[in-house]
Design a protein around this nucleic acid. Sequence first.
DNA 1: ACGACAATCTTGTCAATGTCAAGATGACCT
DNA 2: AGGTCATCTTGACATTGACAAGATTGTCGT
Lengths: 202, 202
Amino acid sequence: MAKYHHGNLRREVLNCAIAMITEHGVEGLSLRKVAKELGVSHAAPSHHFKSKSDLLAEIIRESYEMLTSTILAAIADHDETTATQRLRIMGSTSMRWAVANKARFSVMMNPDVSRFAEEAVHKALAEFVGVVADAIGEAKGEGFYPDTSNAILLLYAIGAANGIATVLTDDLVKTAVGVDIGENDYDALASLIVDTRDERPR
Amino acid sequence: MAKYHHGNLRREVLNCAIAMITEHGVEGLSLRKVAKELGVSHAAPSHHFKSKSDLLAEIIRESYEMLTSTILAAIADHDETTATQRLRIMGSTSMRWAVANKARFSVMMNPDVSRFAEEAVHKALAEFVGVVADAIGEAKGEGFYPDTSNAILLLYAIGAANGIATVLTDDLVKTAVGVDIGENDYDALASLIVDTRDERPR
DNA sequence: ACGACAATCTTGTCAATGTCAAGATGACCT
DNA sequence: AGGTCATCTTGACATTGACAAGATTGTCGT
């Protein structure tokens, strides 16, 4: 009595895969187990994602879209800020998002997946990078690190925020560093990243 | 005519695995292919590493040792520096090392591997973290970010350096950010991380 | 209403892989 | 010489991703 035409198998595969990654990591993701979990045949997912890499790439694409809209929404909630303050909000929001979406973030940070990324992923990622780059450009006009090129600042900002989030989402490193984060600490960390002389009076 | 008693199969497995990861990523690592490459039977590596995770964990352990001794050596070469300057050197050296050892670094940053890490890995990692923590403690005495706890600073410093290195070693993100790094830029990036008011006169 | 068509799902199959068990081989020591 | 142990081989098994071919269902034109 196999149930044909599941309805929205594609979405359920994505959700189930993320749940499985949350519990067992990317390595623990098995398309066949996903299919079993959803009560479909082992080959059903392959009609929505042409390969495992393809499924993971879609998770990445979707996640970058989520992240981008999340930081944009956060900025919209604080409309009175300067560009430098917007950068800070973007940083803290990104880190919070990563911790709240460990599975998605771990896939995004997995170089093995990006290796097979396709056009759609590049586009979503470029959009995210673009938003940060714009904020840096505006902050530059406010005297933000005037001696450093925008390209280096972009690398620094994205790298630092992602790296801190990585430490917070990697149990091994997190335990070694031995820090437990409270809600306020995200803002403190973001401040450390975008720290400039003008805004940290001795 | 199979050649028994290979001699130093353990080390050759490690080297071959790293070479394979360099070319095809962690996902592209196959114990059987390593064995074939080395001209031994498919089960030979299992007598030196009880599982694939075990092999990867050993690569991580070894790599943290390499990284720790590399930054200690770099500091020893600049004996005239202050603690804050030592932090800067540690940061730029770490990032350079990561770029020069992409395969090892990608394994270290892979959460799926750390999930199964054992005591020896924890120890090597703790040693690395300890070196950074010590430097931060000393810098603190020089007025380094006096308003921020050592724990947060440690998280920030390690996270930022690792994150920037991650961007530089991930082709997808690196391309999206669109930056090409020169030798001097590592120092500039390290300066951005340990940037304090006192050392960046307007 | 009806039949083609496309989308979706199933069943069957294959090669690759990690892991384990049992036996073979060779170095070293006494 | 003989035994002992680490090392390696052979053989086997379950899991997995991927593919091919067929079955089922919804849709759309007529």
